[in-house]
Lab assay of single mutants.
Amino acid sequence: DESNKPILLPNESQSFERSVQLLDQIPSYDTHKIAVLYVGEGQSNSELAILSNEHGSYRYTEFLTGLGRLIELKDCQPDKVYLGGLDVCGEDGQFTYCWHDDIMQAVFHIATLMPTKDVDKHRCDKKRHLGNDFVSIVYNDSGEDFKLGTIKGQFNFVHVIVTPLDYECNLVSLQCRKDMEGLVDTSVAKIVSDRNLPFVARQMALHANMASQVHHSRSNPTDIYPSKWIARLRHIKRLRQRICEEAAYSNPSLPLVHPPSHSKAPAQTPAEPTPGYEVGQRKRLISSVEDFTE
């Protein structure tokens, strides 16, 4: 099969070098950035008060330690540790928490760990991170309901609301924008112990962030949302095809390698009803078989 044979790379090609550099910018793992907010007593309706908090309760602090690993920003190499735009020179604080497994990295933009500057009256330095995160974990210690939209931002799609209760338990629920209701189930609340709260809140936030990324990708319907490693695979396959075309153009005697095509017509299947918005969006999480067989 010609399409699977190794090909020689061009010795000097600026377009090839640019493509390789672009490939280096696509990590081999999925990345997520999640905002974390603490809401104190009497702050449920005040964005400024929430963003001005420099610490929270003892249970909130224990919750943070379970979310991930504490890292010092100045020691991080952005090409190895995903920071979601946090500055490593102290502009966004000294520490944050991050978490990773074999296929993804997540960083938490924690408002109480970011510096509260006197010259920044409206807390814009914090909002440029927190307001651009799709998902926020809100530790609501106010005793009042927290409403979506209290923290203004164009991309605040989903809130994971943590409400501490007695007996070391917590109520965990989801809020989302109306255009996200087909992807996020907000109907079920959970009672979770303090011990298990970081794991549950983190998983709910990661799932909500993946759904938000799919939702946000609708602005470019021709580019369905893939995982990062599938995006790398697609980029490599496009690069291979372009090299083959350039080689055939410079030397017409060489065969032009095309991806294999299936001449056999697909079997006719009964027509199915058109899937609704929710089903269609969830299918976009699934990769096409052509990603692996071309």
Rank of each mutant, 00 (worst) to 15 (best):
T186M: 06
S263Y: 06
Y249H: 06
P266T: 12
S193R: 01
P164T: 00
Y58W: 15
N196Q: 04
P78R: 10
A248G: 07
S261M: 08
S253Y: 10
H32G: 03
G68W: 04
K121R: 09
S263Q: 10
I243H: 11
A49T: 03
L51F: 07
K117A: 12
Q105L: 14
Q105M: 12
R284G: 13
L48K: 13
Q25M: 11
K228H: 09
S52F: 02
V20Y: 07
H258Y: 10
S142Y: 00
Y139P: 00
M180E: 01
P226D: 08
S28Q: 09
R232S: 11
A231M: 08
S19H: 15
S217M: 07
L254R: 13
G182N: 05
T61I: 04
Q241W: 07
Q21V: 05
V279L: 09
L86H: 14
V138S: 01
I230L: 05
S46I: 02
P252M: 12
K178P: 14
P226F: 04
K264M: 09
L48N: 09
A231E: 15
V214D: 01
C89W: 06
P115N: 05
T186Y: 04
E17M: 09
I34M: 02
T65S: 14
E181T: 14
E2F: 13
E47M: 03
A208S: 05
Y60F: 04
S250T: 10
S187G: 10
R234N: 14
G131T: 15
V158A: 09
Y58R: 08
P252H: 07
N45C: 06
S15Q: 12
M114N: 07
A271V: 06
M104G: 05
D118T: 14
R202A: 13
V39G: 00
R284C: 12
Q94R: 14
Q21E: 11
L165F: 03
P275C: 10
T116R: 06
S142N: 01
C98K: 07
Q14H: 10
I191Y: 07
N4E: 15
L23D: 10
S15H: 10
K264R: 10
S217F: 11
L130E: 05
D133G: 13
V214Q: 08
L23T: 06
K74C: 08
L148R: 14
Q105R: 12
W99G: 03
L67Q: 00
H32N: 04
E54T: 09
Q77Y: 09
D120R: 09
N132M: 12
W99E: 04
H216P: 02
V160E: 00
D30E: 13
Q25W: 06
S52H: 04
T31C: 14
D24K: 03
G85E: 10
S142K: 01
F134D: 01
I151W: 05
Q14P: 10
E54W: 03
E272W: 09
D166P: 08
E72G: 07
E294Q: 11
A205R: 00
N45Y: 03
I103C: 10
A267H: 10
A265G: 11
R242K: 12
L197N: 00
C89F: 10
N53R: 01
S52E: 06
D1L: 13
E245D: 12
S212M: 14
S253K: 05
H159Y: 15
C124R: 15
H262F: 08
R234L: 06
L174E: 01
F146M: 04
E54I: 04
R282Q: 12
V184T: 04
I243A: 07
A49E: 05
F146K: 00
